[in-house]
Design a protein around this nucleic acid. Sequence first.
DNA 1: GCAAATTAATGATTTATTCAAG
DNA 2: CTTGAATAAATCATTAATTTGC
Lengths: 175, 175
Amino acid sequence: METVVARLSNGGGGGGSRWCPTPEQVMLLEGMYRGGLKTPTATQIQQITARLSLYGRIQGKNVFYWFQNHKARDRQKIRKKLMAMYQHQRFLPSYNSTCYPTFPIQVVGAKIEENSSCKSMVNEWNVDQSCKKVMCECSFMTVMMMESTSPYSTRVPPKTLQLFPTTPAPTSTSS
Amino acid sequence: METVVARLSNGGGGGGSRWCPTPEQVMLLEGMYRGGLKTPTATQIQQITARLSLYGRIQGKNVFYWFQNHKARDRQKIRKKLMAMYQHQRFLPSYNSTCYPTFPIQVVGAKIEENSSCKSMVNEWNVDQSCKKVMCECSFMTVMMMESTSPYSTRVPPKTLQLFPTTPAPTSTSS
DNA sequence: GCAAATTAATGATTTATTCAAG
DNA sequence: CTTGAATAAATCATTAATTTGC
């Protein structure tokens, strides 16, 4: 496949929009992380950058960000598992609360139950048959939530662009 | 080439597993894309869906995915072409396990002062699309100051560069 | 011509990275 | 430093093209 080839897009110097680590870079970074290095100092970042630049274009900020996020997401995974256990405990007979603690939506990977709060949002998209298992996934959920609520967005430019610049009007248009 | 029957598989409500756009829908979507609409908002997706539903069964998520994929594959084509021109050097050396430590080394002492004059150093980064204004954070400065030279492998000294020397980091000399 | 087999396109998901606010 | 939101990259999965042998 083109997997390996695509990863070399940044290394080719074409001016890719963001750093795309090569497998070797990822291996080395993960090795260091597992070795105990969680928050490298500036000196360490410089040395790591110099070493990894042999395998592709890389900058110090990439190394810095990588460790920041890797550490953050490591904690996130633990949190998710704890949350999943807590969700599971809700259905135990000894725990009879019906209110959700702090999590407004379903966990990643959780199936949509018939009584789930996701159901209403899923219906906004007229999802009937293709709702297989993970409709409440993060990326998709963002769109669904924007759909059902007021679509204020911090990133989307507020320019009023025309939806249909060209209207071919195929055949049967009674509008 | 008679595929009319096949295209009607989802429009007729047969319950196809995935959306199969009609030629009219594709025409309209491509027209919008060429017109400059690359990342529609939720509201736009809703309107587009309503408009395109005249030509066949369609859902908001289909429109959302279409733009995501179309944009991504546009970039992919460009990347491949640029890469084809540039892919000539630098094969990846084999992985060597001596590159990273096997026990945690947390070098302390590479602290940095909250000096000012951030703006001049911001330019030392290849600030293109990211790192807009929060660059003047203390932690960032440590990385920024070390990124002054070219990050590409042409400058990297080929000598044996140990990532984590046993000697303490000499960055504390600034005090 | 035609279907099984294979390949190419592309819709749909998942994962990784960036951005920004707290 | 933490976290949520948004996006892009990578991947999976299914459909359409096409090849191939009959």
